[in-house]
Design a protein around this nucleic acid. Structure first.
Length: 558
RNA sequence: UGGGGAGUAGUGAAAUGGUAUCACGGCAGCCUUUGGAGCUGCUUUUCCAGGUUCGAAUCCUGGCUCCUCAGCCA
């Protein structure tokens, strides 16, 4: 099956197909992903990346990475590196096509001179406040600047002086001469160059004038030979301006801007300012705290990049503002990990179990499958002995009807090992807390089944006391309690104060001691976990990526 | 209230004048050496009102609701 058949079609794909059919760009498809290096990429960017690179891939075209760095006061090279890392992690490749809008500053300046010569741009001396006042409102037309009809020669001279640093910051701008009466605010003689003395992360102090996005973007696209410039919906009413620059400068085969709705997720906030506040207030540890919606956080948490890509494919491409259920993402993560994550046994809340009739000092090894979904994953051997630990939640002294696990007098299976029956519950005389279970095992049930084929309802995971290793496990939950973090108007009020639970004394199978950072496992009956970089030679630290679906847990809640 | 967009099950998407389809979620059942996974079934939809048509989610007219634009941000 080809890629185009496995994905539902969308309007952008159709538009590109049509352009190919009509030979609009000589059959070429060339897109670009244009981040501003002013912050970390988040899950919303992942959708844009998948669309930009994905469309090019689908049609055998190319996608450039271009940093849209036209505002030096906001941008930093620190972000450049993290953005590249995130895109690569998602599995996309811009090959040798790494560009910066700042690479084009000279060319962009020449284009501006050309606009002036064509009488399509002018230097305006109005202050920012005056420009705002002259712009008019949504319902009233704007007024033309008194500087609008300067001669070409004067504009040329002034613009050159702007570039040369003759004027203070903010004192003058270069504006496109379009239409102050346009109902589209973007066409009311927009500013295209401003004076700004700031050190640029790439061009240093070479420039004291910088182009605006609306001007730099279409021309950067044109310079790179971009055919389809895909962006989000809020740029829809910038499109006439995008086209205006290309037409004014008589760009042949001008690129075409197509807008799509950005991704929103339930229980997720992507506002840079608000996320920063969560960090500053110490609510999360940083931009890569596994609860954050950034790609670096998702990577640390253990989300497989393929799951994120699959998720982006599934949510589709459309023009309506939407909010996708986080469960959809979790589903993609589980689907991927179910197929590929090796299984191990880990006990998060250990309860000691002594098998009273099992010989002291004896150790057996039981073969158990690494992944029942993947026959090629093989088996491993787990050690078993007289004292094991099971999950505290897997025992109840006075169990309700549908509890299929261990209880006094009841028999259950220890996965791949033996059937055991609970004979005695040992409690702390002071607190009444259950400290130990004394059970018998059935030697006939070796490997987990008996000759008489009798059934047991429950199968528990376990670890051997003498062989298990201690680990820290971090259980994550959503950062917000409400689907919409802004519900009620205050996102801080909706914060989930139990969004992380750190469990210090977990016991995991010795087979994972050598696990590398980032390795992903399924902890049997719990969920999927990855090795956090906080792990040391002495102790592994695991992040819960996502839990397994838990029908027992669900029953208990209702 | 000017301009630009968008309205299809709870959520996201498809259907391009011809049986409203898919995924997620929820619910029920089957199966199970993971209460996982898998399988089966159910759940539930074209913003409203007119019109054109044998036939409308799709075309036309009018309305409603939501998003978006008044940075020398991107």
């Amino acid at each position: 099956m080809s890629i185009s058949e496995s994905k539902p079609s969308n309007f952008i794909q159709e538009a590109i197909e049509n352009d190919i059919k009509t030979n609009r760009y000589g059959g070429r498809v060339h897109t670009r992903f244009p981040p501003e290096p002013n912050g970390y990429l988040h899950i919303g960017h992942a959708k844009a990346i998948c669309i930009d690179f994905g469309m090019a891939e689908l049609f055998g075209g190319l996608c450039n990475l271009r940093f849209d760095d036209t505002n030096p006061v906001k941008e930093d090279t620190e972000y450049v590196d993290s953005i590249m890392e995130d895109i690569r992690w998602l599995g996309f490749d811009w090959e040798d096509r790494l560009y910066y809008a700042s690479d084009y500053f000279d060319q962009l300046y020449e284009y501006a001179v050309e606009l002036i010569k064509k009488g399509k741009a002018f230097v305006c001396d109005l202050s920012p406040e005056e420009i705002r006042a002259y712009r008019g409102t949504l319902t009233e037309p704007g007024k033309e600047s008194p500087y609008r009809n300067r001669s070409i020669e004067e504009n040329l001279a002034l613009f050159e002086q702007m570039k040369a640093g003759a004027f203070p910051d903010g004192s003058r701008v270069l504006r496109a001469k379009i239409d102050m009466r346009s109902p589209n605010m973007n066409m009311r003689d927009p500013v295209i160059y401003r004076i700004l003395r700031a050190t640029h992360h790439r061009t240093g102090d070479k420039w004291c004038i910088y182009p605006m996005y609306d001007y730099a973007h279409p021309l950067s696209d044109a310079i790179e030979g971009i055919t389809h410039s895909l962006c989000s919906l809020e740029f829809e009413d910038h499109r006439p301006l995008y086209d205006w620059f290309l037409e004014a400068l008589e760009i042949p085969q001008p690129p075409r801007q197509i807008e799509f709705a950005r991704l929103n997720l339930t229980r997720t906030m992507t506002s840079k300012r608000k996320l920063r506040k969560l960090i500053e207030d110490g609510f999360v540890a940083g931009w890569d705290d596994p609860r954050m919606p950034t790609l670096s956080a998702m990577r640390r948490r253990g989300f497989p990049p393929s799951a994120i890509k699959e998720f982006c494919n599934r949510v589709g491409v459309a023009k309506n503002n939407s909010v996708v259920d986080f469960a959809q993402l979790e589903h993609c993560v589980r689907e991927e990990l179910n197929l590929h994550a090796p299984r191990i046994m880990a006990v998060l809340n250990p309860l000691r179990v002594v098998l009273v009739n099992y010989p002291e000092g004896q150790v057996e090894e039981f073969a158990t499958e690494n992944n029942p979904e993947d026959p090629n994953a093989g088996v491993r051997h787990v050690p078993f002995s007289r004292v094991v630990y099971i999950e505290r939640d897997d025992f109840m002294e006075d169990p309700p009807k549908k509890f299929f696990r261990l209880a006094p007098g009841r028999e259950v299976r220890l996965k791949s090992a033996y059937y055991i029956t609970c004979q005695e519950v040992v409690k702390d005389p002071q607190t009444g807390e259950i400290v130990e279970l004394r059970c018998t095992y059935d030697p006939e049930s070796r490997g987990g089944s008996t000759p008489d084929n009798r059934r047991v309802r429950g199968t528990l995971h376990w670890v051997s006391e003498d062989h298990a290793v201690k680990a820290e496990v971090r259980l994550y939950d959503h950062l917000f309690l409400t689907d919409d973090p802004e519900d009620g108007g205050d996102y801080l009020a909706n914060l989930n104060h139990q969004s992380v639970e750190i469990k210090k004394n977990c016991l995991v199978e010795a087979s994972v001691t050598a696990a590398e950072t980032g390795a992903r496992y399924q902890f049997l009956r719990h969920g999927y976990f990855s090795v956090d970089p906080d792990s040391t030679a002495d102790e592994l630290v695991f992040n819960r990526i996502v839990s397994l679906k838990d029908s027992w847990g669900k029953m208990q809640k209702s």
